[in-house]
C-alpha cells in the first residue's frame, strides 16, 4: 500500500473549512479520513472547491449506511416545524390581508371554495401538530425537569411564552394605536413581522431542546407521523391560498386591502407581489415535503 509522504498539517485550511459544509453524519463517518487525506495530499484551493461541490449531493442524497434513524427523525421534525410555521405564517398573513378585510368574494366559487379548503386545511394542520407534538413536548419537558436542566426547560417553555407575549403586544398596540378602521398599514406590518419572530422563537425552542436532549422512541415516531399529516395539510392550505390568490388577481384587481395600500399601486406590482408570494409558498412547501418524507421513511424503517 502506498505510504504517504511526511504530513503537512495546516496547509489544507480552506479544504478543512469546506468539510464543514457536509452533513454532520457524513462528517462523523468520513471527516477524519478526509482530513488525513488532505494532510497527505496538501489540500489547496482545488481540493476545497471539490469538497464544497460534493457537499451538495451529500445533503440531497445522504448515504444510506449513515442512516441514524432517530437523528434523521429529529432533523426532519426540526425542519418541518420551522418551515411549516413559516408557511402557516405566510398563509395566515395572506388570509388576513385578503379574507378578513371585508372584500366580498361572493359570486366567485373558485375563490370562496379555496378559502374554505384553506380554513379546513389549517385546522387539520393545527390538530395534527397538537396531537403529534404534545406527547414529545411533554416527554422532553418531564426529562428536562427531572434532570434539572434549566436551559432546556426554558427552551421548551418558549412555544407558550412567545405567542402569549405576541398576543399581549398586539392587544396593547391595538388599544394604543388602533382607530375605528383598525391600525395603520405600517403598524400592521410591524405586528406581522413581530408575529413571524414569535413563531420562529416558538419553533426554535423545541428544536434546540431536541438537539440537546436527543429524545428517542414512540413519541418521536408519533411526532414524525403527525408532522407528515401537518405538512400535507399546510401544503394543501398553501395551494388553496395560491388558487384563491390567482382567483383574486383575475377578478379583484381593484381590491384595496392593506397590502395594496402599502406597497403596490400598479397592476405590475400586484402581479410581482403575487408571484413572490407563490414562490415563497412553493419553496417552503417543497422543503417541508422533502424533510417530512425523509422523516417518515426513517420512522417506518427497521
Amino acid at each position: 500500500m502506498a505510504t504517504p509522504p511526511a504530513r503537512r498539517p495546516g496547509r489544507a485550511r480552506l479544504a478543512r473549512a469546506a468539510l464543514r459544509l457536509y452533513p454532520p453524519a457524513w462528517r462523523a463517518r468520513y471527516g477524519s479520513e478526509v482530513l488525513v487525506l488532505l494532510d497527505d495530499t496538501g489540500g489547496g484551493l482545488a481540493a476545497a472547491m471539490g469538497l464544497a461541490w460534493r457537499a451538495i449531493p451529500a445533503w440531497i442524497w445522504p448515504p444510506r449506511q449513515l442512516h441514524d434513524r432517530d437523528a434523521r427523525m429529529r432533523t426532519s421534525l426540526s425542519t418541518v416545524l420551522m418551515t411549516g410555521a413559516m408557511l402557516a405564517g405566510v398563509c395566515l398573513t395572506f388570509a388576513q390581508l385578503t379574507q378578513f378585510q371585508g372584500y366580498e368574494t361572493h359570486g366567485f366559487p373558485l375563490v370562496v371554495g379555496s378559502y374554505a379548503i384553506f380554513d379546513a386545511a389549517m385546522v387539520v394542520c393545527a390538530l395534527a401538530a397538537a396531537v403529534g407534538g404534545l406527547p414529545l413536548w411533554l416527554v422532553m419537558l418531564r426529562r428536562a425537569r427531572r434532570e434539572h436542566r434549566t436551559r432546556e426547560t426554558a427552551y421548551l417553555v418558549l412555544p407558550l411564552v412567545a405567542p402569549i407575549a405576541w398576543i399581549a403586544t398586539v392587544a396593547a398596540v391595538a388599544r394604543l394605536l388602533g382607530g375605528p378602521d383598525g391600525v395603520s398599514p405600517g403598524v400592521f406590518l410591524a405586528v406581522t413581522l413581530l408575529g413571524f419572530g414569535a413563531a420562529a422563537a416558538s419553533c426554535a425552542g423545541p428544536i434546540l431542546a431536541m438537539r440537546r436532549l436527543r429524545p428517542r422512541g414512540p413519541a418521536v415516531q408519533l411526532a414524525v407521523r403527525a408532522a407528515g399529516v401537518a405538512t400535507a395539510a399546510i401544503v394543501v392550505a398553501g395551494a388553496a391560498s395560491a388558487t384563491a390568490l390567482t382567483g383574486l388577481s383575475v377578478v379583484a384587481l381593484g381590491y384595496d386591502g392593506y397590502l395594496f395600500m402599502l406597497f403596490v399601486p400598479t397592476v405590475a406590482q400586484v402581479v410581482a407581489v403575487f408571484a413572490g408570494y407563490l414562490a415563497v409558498v412553493a419553496a417552503l412547501a417543497i422543503t417541508a415535503i422533502v424533510s417530512a418524507r425523509r422523516g417518515a421513511r426513517a420512522a417506518h424503517s427497521r
Binding site: 479544504a15 469546506a18 457524513w26 463517518r29 468520513y30 479520513e33 478526509v34 487525506l37 488532505l38 495530499t41 489540500g43 482545488a46 481540493a47 471539490g50 469538497l51 464544497a52 461541490w53 460534493r54 457537499a55 449531493p57 451529500a58 448515504p63 444510506r64 449506511q65 449513515l66
Partner: peptide, 15 residues
C-alpha cells in the same frame, strides 16, 4: 481524484 470526489465515491460504493 480529489478528496471530495474520492469520498463521494467511497460513500456511494459502501452504500
Amino acid at each position: 481524484l480529489g478528496a471530495g470526489t474520492l469520498y463521494a465515491v467511497i460513500s456511494r460504493l459502501e452504500a
